[in-house]
Each structure stands twice: as structure tokens, then as C-alpha cells.
Amino acid sequence: MKYAVIAGALSLFSITAVANETSLLSYDYVEAGYAKMDVDDIDELSFDGYVVKLSKQVSDNWYLTGLYASTSDDLFESESMDYRDLYRNGEYVGTSTLYRESGLDIEITRLELGLGYIQQLSAVTNLDYSIKLGRLKFESDNTYLSEERFNGVEFDSYSDGDSDSSSADILSANVQVRHLLTDQFEVNAGVGYERLHDEESDNNLVLKAGFNYAFTEKAIVGAAYRNVNEYSDLSVTLRYNF
């Protein structure tokens, strides 16, 4: 899989839980929101979309996680130039115009399932360890159009296009520390390892930082930033504790 596929690894989430009396650190929630990914050295593409996350605590220390993210971007270029002189009955009648346009549409989806373990350090601080398996899918559509025009009339044209699709398996391991600064405000940071397995498999160091703010016992807004070697992603989500 090409570099663009690897770059598409989008938005790991590693939200953890602590004691039940602090609702902000609950493991039982669903959350959804905005996701954005940027790739180093590719200024033309910036992938935007959405992410949905789910967490369910299954025992005092164990929890299950799930994530689905979809991001996309497109490029469009066009140009128009003088092409050739036209003659009728040996007399010059004008110059035709060559119009060209090309388009590229890219979509990257990510699906993950994981298992995590909570180590409570204090009433307001804990460590979380997680292992996740998933699949990254990359799809692209290319279009091309060329038209020769004269006086606004098209009299010769050519169009073409193609699609491509590929995928990679994901394996990741993460550790994260979460800390409550106040009853409503949490900060978190983590480090991890991520491997995308295909013909061009990469091993990536993951660095993550974020925060969560509880408006009510059930409604929480959060943001997380991850840096994964040659790309980075940002998510802003609204969470509902259940």
C-alpha cells in the first residue's frame, strides 16, 4: 500500500476510566464528533470527517473499546489555453481553446476494536493499557476531461477516470495517564506503538495528548491530538455517559 494509505491511519482513541464516583472518568460512554488528519510534506491534502467511539466497562479493571472513523479530501484543477489556429476554405477564422480539468477524491476509513486494562493510581489519577486490532481502508477516484472549444462550442473531447481501493491491518498498543485537575476537567497524555501491515508495513511511534470537560454528569466535550511519525490527527467530540 502506498504512503497515502499509511498516512491515512486516523484517530486512535484511548480514553480510560477510574472510580465510579468520578463521572468524567467513566468507561461507559458513546461519543461522536469531528476528525481531521494532516500528512507531512503533502500540503495539498487535509482530510476532514467524523469519528464515532464506544467504550464499555466489563469488570472492575477491564473494558472494551470500538472506533469507526471516516475522513476524505478532494483536489480539482482546471486550465484553459489557446490551442490551434482554425481555417475555413483556406481563410483563418480564429484560434480554438483547449480546456482541461482533473479531479481526485480520496476517502480513508478506519475500524478498530480493543481491550484495555485500568490501573488506578489514586482517586484522580490512573493508567490505562490497551491493545487494538483494526482495518484501514483507502479508496480513491480519479477523473480527467479534455475539450477543444471554439466560440463556446465544444467540437472535440476526451474523458477518462479510474478507481483504486486497498486496505491494511492495524495493530496498536498504548499506555495513557489520565488526571483530574478539577471535578470537571481532565487532562491526559499517552505513548504507543502502531503497525500497519501490508506490503509496505510501517512501525510508528504514537504520541497523544488531550482533555475532557464535563458540562453535566452525562455530557462531556473533549479534544485529542495525536502525532504518528509522518502524520498527525485531531478530534473534537461530544460524549454521552450511560
Rank of each mutant, 00 (worst) to 15 (best):
K53N: 15
G49H: 10
D128Q: 13
A19D: 14
E217F: 12
N61Q: 12
A7G: 15
D105H: 13
M81V: 13
K53I: 08
R100I: 11
H179C: 04
S140D: 05
D105G: 15
L181A: 06
L25R: 05
E230W: 07
D169S: 14
K53H: 11
L238H: 00
N174Q: 07
E230I: 10
L25M: 13
K218Y: 07
S201T: 10
S96D: 08
Q184S: 08
T237P: 04
G94D: 07
D41K: 12
N212P: 02
D202Q: 14
L24Q: 08
I108V: 15
V191D: 09
G33R: 05
L196C: 02
E230L: 11
D38Y: 07
D28F: 01
S163G: 09
L238K: 01
G192E: 12
E186W: 00
M81A: 15
K56H: 06
G192F: 02
D40M: 06
A209L: 01
E139I: 04
D202H: 11
L113C: 11
D28M: 04
L98W: 04
H197I: 12
S130G: 03
L86R: 03
S140V: 07
R226N: 13
S72V: 13
K218R: 14
D40K: 10
Y225M: 08
Y29C: 13
E101P: 05
R110F: 08
V153R: 05
R110A: 07
L10F: 09
G152I: 04
D198E: 15
G90I: 03
V93F: 03
S70A: 11
D28Y: 03
Y92M: 07
D82F: 13
L113P: 04
S140N: 10
L104D: 08
D73E: 11
G134P: 00
S70P: 02
Q184Y: 05
K36I: 08
E101L: 05
L121S: 09
R178C: 14
R178H: 15
S14C: 08
N212R: 07
G66P: 07
E148D: 13
V221D: 01
G114K: 01
R110I: 05
S72R: 09
Y240P: 02
V18W: 10
I6D: 09
L98V: 09
S130T: 03
I15T: 06
S72L: 12
L136N: 01
D162C: 04
M81H: 15
L234I: 03
